[in-house]
Design a protein around this nucleic acid. Sequence first.
DNA 1: TCTGTACATGTACAAATGTACATCAGCGGG
DNA 2: CCCGCTGATGTACATTTGTACATGTACAGA
Lengths: 186, 186
Amino acid sequence: MTARRDPDGRREAIVRAAVETIAEVGLGQVTHRRIAARAGVPLGSTTYYFPTLDDLVAAALREGTEAARALLEDWAEALTVSPDPAATLVELAERYLADWDRALLEYELYLAAARTPRLRPVAALWTDGLRGICARFAGPARGFALAALVDGAMLQALVAGGPLEAETLRAGADALLSPRTAAGST
Amino acid sequence: MTARRDPDGRREAIVRAAVETIAEVGLGQVTHRRIAARAGVPLGSTTYYFPTLDDLVAAALREGTEAARALLEDWAEALTVSPDPAATLVELAERYLADWDRALLEYELYLAAARTPRLRPVAALWTDGLRGICARFAGPARGFALAALVDGAMLQALVAGGPLEAETLRAGADALLSPRTAAGST
DNA sequence: TCTGTACATGTACAAATGTACATCAGCGGG
DNA sequence: CCCGCTGATGTACATTTGTACATGTACAGA
């Protein structure tokens, strides 16, 4: 049975393949041919749906990041009902990092955004989301610090090629979430 | 006056050009030709001194990171004599980030190390150095958290394309360096 | 059934790239 | 000055890549 036409589905399959390809080989090694092969479509399809490779990559980064950001809603909920937000935050970060590809994609996006201003709104999907959540529990300044800590701790785990250092993040979260000033401080 | 032979100097010039090229265009767009042009040497020189582009890139990453790590000794000294280590740390991070290229190189290295285990020892030059210093002031767990916070805060500044958020880092450093448990806690 | 439009494909091509290496140049010692 | 070794150069080449597009196919409406 020959597949029926499904332009939307095909376009999405290409974007999904691009997400996976970026995670696997990094932005610098992404090619049309790699994406096409991964999506199981002919080479010409990638340029049919996207004018340039940059456009395809941008679409992939956006899609990957939107998926990650959607997770943050679960984070917010889990932290809200948790009797121990610091411990919960550690668990959430560990779980996030368990999907290595997703984490790599995030940092690929960060580095790309550092060089390419038009990607910054995409990167902000995650950073602003995370910061917003952390600020809800620790106030603005400490909350933003907590978000930076989470990002930094996960990055360091990636660099070391190992798991998140739970005690490190736990100690930091404890300090930043300590009841001393979190709720009422400016 | 024709330049005399200086193989060591030439090799270093190539590595230096590679460092600058990586910072400028990112690891994914680094080419022999770009490095050679930047170093002001003929194309063949890059392959004369380095068997592969990967070897040249690795040498550049190492050199760039060693230079950055050497700065950490200044950090240690400044923090030691400072009456307000948190404020000093913020200043040091701000100054580090003022050299945008250097900061970009660091994160390029991080991301590369996440994918390429043989680069991890190079990345560890910075992460271990920073962690060691922070641990000296905040103890192991909180010190490691502080190091992650510094890395995360700088990364977020790069992503946003703006300056370091001093208040954020300041708030985090204050919390992690608070006298409550820093000196004696395990 | 025919037709026009949209979807899809695979080829072609110019440009770029890493690498290899034949050849040339510099230099020091005899 | 000559020679051999080391340093240096620029060309060549096979491969890869992004992009363009002619051609073919699918499909809905008349």
